[in-house]
Amino acid sequence: MGELDGKVIAVTGAGRGIGLSHAQLLASEGARVVVNDLGTTPDGRSAAAAAAGAIRASGGTAVADDSDISTWSGGESLVEKALSSFGALDGLVLNAGIIRDRMLVNMVEDEWDAVMAVHLKGHFAPLRAASAHWRQLAKETGRPAGAHVVMTSSEAGLYGNVGQANYSAAKAGIVGLAMVAARELERYGISVNAICPRSRTPMTEHLGLFDAGEGFDRWDPDNIAPFVGYLCSDASSEITGRTFVVHGGTVSLLEPWQEVAHLDRDSRWTVAELIPAAAELFRDRSPALAPFPDPTAAHA
């Protein structure tokens, strides 16, 4: 018996890396999984088909899907694949992503558009299709849909990372999308949360920062999947609109933007008045942007 017995969960970008870990963990907990991926294996086979086949060989239940979730029709096709294969859709794990890193003054339009399409539109298109299904289900049955959505952001979207204007902007947009979706879909019994994973992936392993070392491998992508499984379970139903950083054995809850200082008066400011007054905003802090968090630093 698993924590997700009988649930149907679609996972995008599930042919390798973190997405594959998610799909395998969800299946091991009893979920029936739709493995979505457009990629291929090193020997040229469909990555989605290979991953789904491996899950079935391990005793799980999975089907492959090669819909392009960066398109409107692809998002709808993914939802239809879940419904036609298993008759239901209980969860959506949005994980697909690419990188096209470049300093912003050197970035070309195609590099910006490609990252926005896969990450941001690739989150919205399946989410929109799934949400329409769940809303209709709730109206027809008179009961909450009881579904769960997990989105994949990044600390690059929270803090901004040099050389990743496209990726950071898309990942920040995903956090905003998660909060909007959480507010809009709560009435239908749907939870929506975002995670920022820290792990080795096919996109980051070339950086050389994520060696396994000795003992517990904090960078293993398999470490991320259990928390995703939890967010897909009914035990997490009251958690929605939240963002988490997941790394190794650490799960950190982050809060949205908070006011840390303010200026106030009962009349309009002038520029001349603001020149000395604005220093009050930074009395106890640097006016410069804080350094990007060191991903290899131990959790405080």
Score class of each variant (00 low, 15 high):
V11P: 06
F244I: 00
R283N: 11
G6Y: 12
M151Y: 07
A288V: 13
S77E: 15
L254Y: 10
I98V: 15
M107F: 03
L104C: 11
G13H: 01
G213I: 07
S153G: 14
T201H: 08
A114T: 13
V260D: 08
K121H: 14
L120N: 02
A10E: 00
A117G: 12
P202K: 11
H148A: 02
R218Q: 12
K139Y: 12
D43T: 12
V108F: 09
G208D: 10
G249E: 12
E280Q: 15
H299Q: 12
K171Y: 07
R198W: 14
S199D: 04
G13P: 02
A147N: 07
N166Y: 06
G146R: 08
V115W: 09
A23C: 09
P221K: 11
E255Q: 07
A114Q: 13
K81Y: 10
G75P: 05
A261L: 05
I195F: 00
E140Y: 07
G173N: 04
V35Y: 04
T270L: 03
A27W: 02
S85T: 07
Y167V: 01
A10I: 01
L78N: 04
N36F: 03
V271S: 14
G13V: 01
D68P: 04
L263D: 02
A297I: 10
V93G: 01
F227Q: 05
S46M: 10
A169W: 01
G75D: 08
N166S: 12
A279F: 14
I98Q: 01
T141D: 11
L104E: 13
I190D: 03
A278H: 13
P197C: 13
H123I: 11
G44I: 03
